[in-house]
């Protein structure tokens, strides 16, 4: 790698805002190794108590679905209403179900 062409690798940053909730994508950082990625993510995304935990993941390691496949992948499955509780007929008078 030449010096001129050396902005490090791209990492995606995920932050958990409070204990108990999922980590959420916050943005990305450049870094040459994982410690630097974590440090940069801390400095860049949590200067105002935005989080209690950070994950950094190499962007190149993420496998993402393609927009052109979204029809196939995320079809609303309207032909499968039995996946929803409202599909089922409950006997009259049954409570708490």
């Amino acid at each position: 790698m030449s010096t001129k062409d050396s902005q490090g690798q791209l990492w995606e940053v995920f932050i958990q805002a409070n204990p108990g909730i999922p980590h959420k994508h916050a943005g990305s950082v450049h870094a040459t190794d994982k410690e630097m990625a974590l440090q940069n993510a801390r400095d860049l995304y949590t200067r105002r108590s935005e989080g209690t935990s950070i994950w950094v993941v190499l962007s190149a390691a993420i496998v993402a679905s393609a927009p052109e496949d979204s029809g196939m992948l995320f079809d609303p499955s309207n032909d499968k209403p039995y996946r929803h509780p409202t599909f089922y007929v409950m006997p009259e008078g049954a409570k708490n179900i």
Partner: peptide
């Protein structure tokens, strides 16, 4: 800053 990038890459 070139030497910093160079050092960081060498370390990685």
């Amino acid at each position: 800053g070139a030497w910093v990038r160079e050092a960081a890459n060498a370390y990685a």
